[in-house]
Each structure stands twice: as structure tokens, then as C-alpha cells.
């Protein structure tokens, strides 16, 4: 058995996060489903809401970097090369996109399109 094994990644991430892994995966999945369902229901994106979600996303990226710094006992100020800038961009990006999707879905389901206008 020498092929790339996704089970190895699952095992490692399970050790790293414990039950939190499943909570996070479920939350991520729930947010995406809620987002997609909302877009389908409203037959499009509500731009005002998206802009607000994106503003929150900017903060979400920062929060992701702060969490990363805490758990790694270090921070992006320790960046020493291109791979580090890539990692910083990745962490910020994941935090931002996740926040946008979540915020958009929450706002949309709390105040559907008709009410938002």
C-alpha cells in the first residue's frame, strides 16, 4: 500500500484536533450548504449583503492569523521567506472566505431577500 492515503491525513488531523475536527468539518459543511441553498432560493447573490459579509471577512482573516499565532507559539512576524508569505496568505484567505460564506448565509437566512430590500 504505497498510494497517497487520505486516511493518513484524517488520522493526523484527528490527533491534532480531537473531536473539534468533526465539529469544524460539520460547521464548514453546514455553512456551505446554507450558503448554496440561499443562493438557489434567491436565484442570485444580493450584492449589499455580500459587501457586508466581505467586510466581516476582512476581520475573519485577521482572526485566523491570530489563532494561528497562538497555537503555534509564534506569529507571522516570524516570516522568513516566500513559503511563509504563502502560508500567511493561505491562513488569511481561508479565514476570510470562511467568514464571508458564514456571514452571508447567516444574514441571508435571518433577513431574506424581500426584507433586505
Amino acid at each position: 500500500m504505497k498510494e497517497l492515503d487520505p486516511m493518513v491525513f484524517l488520522a493526523v488531523f484527528q490527533e491534532m484536533l480531537g473531536p473539534m475536527l468533526w465539529v469544524m468539518l460539520f460547521a464548514a459543511l453546514a455553512a456551505v450548504v446554507a450558503f448554496v441553498a440561499l443562493v438557489m432560493r434567491e436565484k442570485g447573490i444580493v450584492s449589499r449583503r455580500l459587501v457586508r459579509a466581505e467586510l466581516l471577512g476582512l476581520i475573519g482573516g485577521v482572526v485566523a492569523l491570530v489563532i494561528m499565532a497562538r497555537v503555534s507559539s509564534s506569529g507571522f512576524t516570524d516570516a522568513g521567506g516566500p513559503a511563509d508569505w504563502f502560508l500567511i496568505a493561505l491562513v488569511y484567505g481561508v479565514g476570510a472566505v470562511a467568514t464571508v460564506i458564514l456571514a452571508y448565509a447567516v444574514m441571508g437566512w435571518m433577513r431574506p431577500r424581500q426584507a433586505a430590500r
Binding site: 493526523v12 507571522f76 516570516a79 511563509d84
Partner: peptide, 21 residues
């Protein structure tokens, strides 16, 4: 041979879960 944050992140975050696995 480059001093990198990403390598430190691996040492502090990823190595122990990988070791336990």
C-alpha cells in the same frame, strides 16, 4: 536551508499529531 516560520509551525503543530498517529 532557509530559516522559515512554516517549518517552525510544522514542528510545533503538526509533528506531535503525526508522531502519535
Amino acid at each position: 536551508l532557509e530559516e522559515l516560520w512554516i517549518s517552525w509551525v510544522m514542528k510545533t503543530m503538526a509533528l506531535k499529531p503525526t508522531y502519535i498517529s
